[in-house]
Design a binder for these strands. Sequence first.
DNA 1: GTCTATAGCCTGATAGAC
DNA 2: GTCTATCAGGCTATAGAC
Lengths: 188, 188
Amino acid sequence: MTTQDRLIESTQDLLWERGYVGTSPKAIQQRSGVGQGSMYHHFTGKPDLAAAALRRSAEQMRGIAEADLAAPGTAYDRIAAYLRRDRDVLRGCRMGRMAQDPDVVADPQLRAPVEETFDWLRGRIADLVAEGQAAGEFAPGLDPADTAAAVVAVVQGGYVLARAAGDAGPFERATRGALGLLAAHRSA
Amino acid sequence: MTTQDRLIESTQDLLWERGYVGTSPKAIQQRSGVGQGSMYHHFTGKPDLAAAALRRSAEQMRGIAEADLAAPGTAYDRIAAYLRRDRDVLRGCRMGRMAQDPDVVADPQLRAPVEETFDWLRGRIADLVAEGQAAGEFAPGLDPADTAAAVVAVVQGGYVLARAAGDAGPFERATRGALGLLAAHRSA
DNA sequence: GTCTATAGCCTGATAGAC
DNA sequence: GTCTATCAGGCTATAGAC
């Protein structure tokens, strides 16, 4: 692994654990085992490094979600697979975590990967809902974009509730609740 | 307003805007107009002040939610009122914001108000769902606790999506989507 | 490319005068 | 109760040698 890669991976981990404000260049150097001079040789500073880390995390998150959403099965099955996927719930979402940080939201370079990830995810699920409607699987009254936003929000909010409780339970309940609500719309 | 109150209110605001890690005693002093010696006379330090601020925010959030949930109307109407309430979406939730901060989650004194608020909220809405089922308003197949967790998660996740997008739109879509899913379970 | 040195500012307090 | 002084340490770099 290259020095850049080690820096980016350490930054990804620290951003996930501690957020942008809570992550210092010094901590990145220590975790990656890369020296100060070396770090500033490869990246111009903390925002630059964070942007690279966020772009990589965005790519990874998209790949993981796509694996569920493009799997064989009905539209409902694939949305259910996304909602039921086994997660390290108390760690939360790499991307969702960033949306809470004012310094990330204020910097277009940092916010862009976060925004694009969720735009893509909502669009992907909205298409799935529409596909399910065309197949007669979901009631035609359902708005695909609204329903998709609700599904993604349940996952993101589930993380919040779980971390607040110090327990994965609320996440499981929220996703189960969402599936229960969605199931009633099936014709099958 | 007393000096304590000014300190607590400033801390509430700063925790909301910047999170726990991003909020310094110095910033609290500047916003409140209270001097350093005075601050340390009334509170032992940052965690003590933050705990007081979070307890007050928890109380306020509960009061605001209860206003919607205890209003006249059917169970569906009251849950809809909660979901549709006019919010400063891009500011996010005072309590949900805290669940992302590792220092808050790690400190029982700080996490307690957050946990209790969401426990109460989920329980309150679960009771409402059960009440609606008893009245024949909701399908009996719905699990009250799961459904309540999903409703609360949609709101919390809606904030995340909205901040990620830099726009309130995704929040509105998510809550509308949740209402659309819930509406299908009504007998009325 | 990587290293050490240095810098100015911030953090989160403590101490003691008033 | 409130004030100013002080402090050890961290933050986020920049500079220049190797």
